[in-house]
Design a protein around this nucleic acid. Structure first.
Lengths: 186, 186
DNA sequence: ATTGCATGAGACATATATGTCTCATTTGGT
DNA sequence: ACCAAATGAGACATATATGTCTCATGCAAT
């Protein structure tokens, strides 16, 4: 039975790795260990090497995002709702998203496959939402998905910069995607 | 007088570095030289080291983006037009944008200052466009700028993926930013 | 108190990237 | 044809990151 009394070194390492590697993918493992407040040897006790660490982070990030989306979709009445709720749920995971975007992991076929799956799932929901009338049928699904992803990351950056709360950022991103930022009256 | 008859090794190196380093910031200089079809020694003849190369790329990227924006603003009647034309002009420079985003250069104060300047300039134009009625006054300038930047990059990725032409991507990004993707009729 | 386990610190070897140098070759201009 | 400059290939030394190991320490459970 693992005792959570002593703060788990592995968890500290994972969190530190997200922070350090999403800010600088080329950072040394020493920097990661230092940020985690942990000796470098301990890092190697939990992860065989850099590749191991990165793969563990990527898989965890993918899992967390899947879980967040699944939970959000539970309470969704429509596909449009599912997208809106998922957006809100994914914003706090922005550092994971950023890590996955900056770390070069096209080499890992397993991770790449998961990426493809997530993209396809998102596109499916987008397409369904489009058929509900949430989006213009004349707009390509690929573009809507691109805009969704990038506005999601923009929302996270806005939160990270302290400009908005997560809820505000989610509202702004969703409005931008659906209504745009034009003056409502005009 | 430099003879452009022989394809400039320096230019080839710069172009290769954009491609390689924007895809993998941790790539070795050997990979950059190889992609450029140039010996590794030649790279060091033109750039003192990795830092030199990265700084040269960053400064060139910033200069190219400035020039593109300046040229685009020449033909703009309004600030809203300036934003729309700049968007279109910046899309082909998406690889530069991506390079600047992925490469950790917060350490370089000179580059960071240029970044700040560009951000402020964009925010100024956004604010002016907002006062023209292009954007809702209730929406924070910071968010509009964030959305502008990220939709710009989304447009570049859409073009790079072969999903759209640059002109189509610019149109979609601008529509998303101003009108959103909702069905026009409803 | 004692035992077991994870950890921290550091030594050590190794791999890779980097930076410098030399020399033969090619290219472009004269 | 000749010359000067740039280049390619490769040797070489060095720095840094990485991976492994050992040993002493601290903490928790018994």
């Amino acid at each position: 039975m693992q005792s959570p009394l002593r703060p788990s070194a592995k968890d500290a390492l994972i969190e530190a790795a997200y922070t350090v590697l999403s800010q600088n993918p080329g950072a040394s493992l020493s920097e990661v260990a230092e940020r985690a407040g942990v000796g470098r040897a301990t890092l190697h006790r939990h992860f065989a090497g850099r590749d191991d660490l990165v793969r563990a982070l990527a898989q965890l990030a993918i899992r967390e995002m899947d879980e967040a989306v699944d939970a959000a979709c539970e309470g969704a009445q429509t596909q449009g709702d599912a997208l809106r709720l998922s957006l809100e749920a994914l914003i706090p995971l922005g550092d994971r998203h950023g890590f996955l975007a900056r770390e070069p992991l096209e080499n890992d076929p397993e991770i790449a496959a998961e990426f493809d799956r997530q993209l396809r799932e998102t596109q499916e929901v987008v397409k369904a939402a489009q058929e509900e009338g949430v989006f213009d049928r004349a707009v390509p699904v690929a573009w809507i998905t691109q805009a969704y992803d990038h506005l999601l990351y923009a929302a996270w950056e806005s939160v990270k910069a302290g400009e908005t709360t997560p809820a505000q950022a989610a509202g702004l991103a969703w409005r931008t995607l659906t209504h745009g930022l034009k003056e409502p009256s005009s």
